[in-house]
Simulated scan of single mutants.
Amino acid sequence: MAKALHQILLFTSLSLIASPLVGQELHKHFELTESKGIDKIELKVSTKAGKSFLNAVDEDEPLLILGASENDVAASTFKIEKTSNTQKVDAELTCKSHMGLNFTESVANNFFSTSDQVHDIWQINLSEHQAFNLNLNYLMGEANVDLSRLAIERLKINSASADVKLTYKEGIMNSVAMDTFFVKVNFGNIEVIDLNYALAKEIIAEVGFGTLSIDCGSDWKMNSRVSASVGAGTLNVVLPPAEIPVLIRINNSPLCNIKMAKDFEKIGHNTFGNQAYINNPDESMEFLLDVGMGSIAFKNR
């Protein structure tokens, strides 16, 4: 096996690209132009503030990252490593004014917001012709992630105090079966719409003090398992249609608040199932929940 290549790349390209998402010109910060011999890209993205957008493009170029200010090109760092047929990219995106921002400051800014937070704007374009593992980390600000037309084998999203929205706006399912969908919320908020389009076998969620809202979508095709732990935050779940068998197991405490959907019956200790599950327990979507001081609410479509 060839020796792994590891280097830090600081790109200074000043190409201008108009962004319809933010209505301004963006500058190229990083690009991968070659995908020959690469079966998968493991992409880790970390942003500290501002607004971030991620979506698919019909391009052979596997990865392009744009930023709002040409003066901030050198503030971000990009590490790449190729092992076998996998290309690893670690992108830490920040502008000069937020280079030293940490988690404690991000939580404070979540309560006492400053006007300069929105000045960081990031646009991440992923080729719909390439397979990805995504690890997305947002310290503060906003993030809009549209996974339509993408091939995501594994997904991890972490919000410190950011507001993150994950969608499939075009209504197109993940082109491969996703191994694991992992989401973690500290003080932020994450909203997942049409989770069914991810085709995820395992969904894992950790909620600290923030809020996680999941809409399972209208057409569930996988026998999936959702494992979630909720500390002092909130988990909201819009369930799949009534004809999808659903089993819910809850390990709770006296300090938590649980709101169960109307058509669920108690079938065991802290165990609930809908009528579809009672009729067909072998083909089901299963929720395994552990909650401390937080709240969990299930809602029918």
Rank of each mutant, 00 (worst) to 15 (best):
A2S: 12
K3F: 06
I8Q: 05
I8F: 04
L14A: 01
A18Q: 12
S35W: 03
G37H: 13
I38V: 15
E42K: 04
L43I: 02
S52F: 07
F53M: 11
N55M: 12
D60R: 10
P62F: 11
L63T: 05
E70F: 13
V73I: 13
A75Y: 04
I80A: 00
T83F: 03
K88I: 12
K88Y: 14
E92R: 08
T94Q: 03
T94S: 09
C95Q: 09
C95P: 09
K96H: 08
K96Q: 14
K96F: 04
S97A: 06
H98I: 05
S106Y: 07
A108H: 13
F111T: 04
T114I: 13
T114Y: 13
S115W: 05
N125I: 01
E128Y: 01
A131N: 10
N135C: 08
N135A: 14
E142H: 11
A143M: 01
V145H: 14
L150M: 10
E153W: 02
R154W: 04
R154C: 07
N158F: 11
A162F: 11
Y168Q: 03
G171E: 11
I172V: 15
M173Y: 04
M173H: 04
S175M: 13
S175G: 11
D179H: 13
D179I: 09
F181K: 06
K184P: 09
G188C: 04
N189Q: 12
D194P: 05
D194E: 14
A198S: 14
F209Y: 07
S213C: 05
D215E: 05
G217M: 06
M222C: 05
N223L: 12
S224C: 06
R225K: 12
V226K: 01
S229A: 02
G233C: 05
V237A: 02
A242L: 06
E243G: 02
I248K: 02
I250Q: 11
C256L: 10
I258C: 00
K262V: 14
K262D: 15
K262L: 08
G273Y: 01
N274K: 07
N274S: 04
Y277P: 11
N280I: 10
M285N: 05
L289F: 00
I296G: 05
A297F: 00
